[in-house]
Amino acid sequence: MSAQKVLSVIDVSSAYGDFVLLEHITFTIKRGDIFIIMGGSGCGKSTMLRHLIGLKRPYKGRVLYGDKDFWAGDEEDRQQIMRRAGVLYQSGALWSSMTLTENVALPLQRYTDLRPAAINELVEFKLSLVGLDGFGDFYPAELSGGMRKRAALARAIALDPEFLFFDEPSAGLDPVSSRRLDELILELRDSLGATVIIVTHELASIYSIATNAVFLDREAKTMLATGNPKTMVRESTNPVVRDFLTRGTGKPPEWMYE
């Protein structure tokens, strides 16, 4: 169980028109991993995520969920796979014309046969998991940024997903909320048994929760390193990776050893 590969990316290249962004990206994610896709701004982290969640077809290469080729099938097959995944978008992407309850309920209405009463109860429970019980009647515009993010997390875990994708989860959050969100991600992973894939450049999160990671670079147009970031920072000889992981100081920050 521990070493089961659930998601592999094999020799993927991505391009916008003629502009090649990334080439020869290969990594595998194991069940229960907290896998971080990191790199500087504009290196293609978010594009990589879009390849994984079916929003953008890679220019070349394969994405395997288990042993199913994600991009070989048609839209329907991809939807079948994405039903097992939850995505937390960078700014939440809650539907602004719907209350939190309606937001969280939509995936359940779409994919389960539960009765409305049961859906309501489940929604209220999911909201209480992220600390937002009682906020069901609020519209996204009435919430603070951090609350919006947690509400979006409640929507992402509505279907008890096997895969949880996060795009910059701590962007726009204060350090404390950001750490709480990290803890929440860990707790949810443990209880739901999900595999978590995070796109971020937040070093604090990278060191505290990652079990595995890939480092993408804009100049090299490819990946420079994979592995646990704590090992990476000590063992990588690549100056770009070292600079990134030590914020340009050359020394790993002390708090990462907590």
């Binding site: 209480s128 998991l129 600390g131 929440l184 707790e187 209880s191 739901l192």
Partner: peptide, 13 residues
């Protein structure tokens, strides 16, 4: 897993 979920749900109120 069930216990963690329940603890999380009871925590906030």
């Amino acid at each position: 897993g069930v216990r963690t979920l329940l603890a999380l749900a009871q925590k906030s109120s």
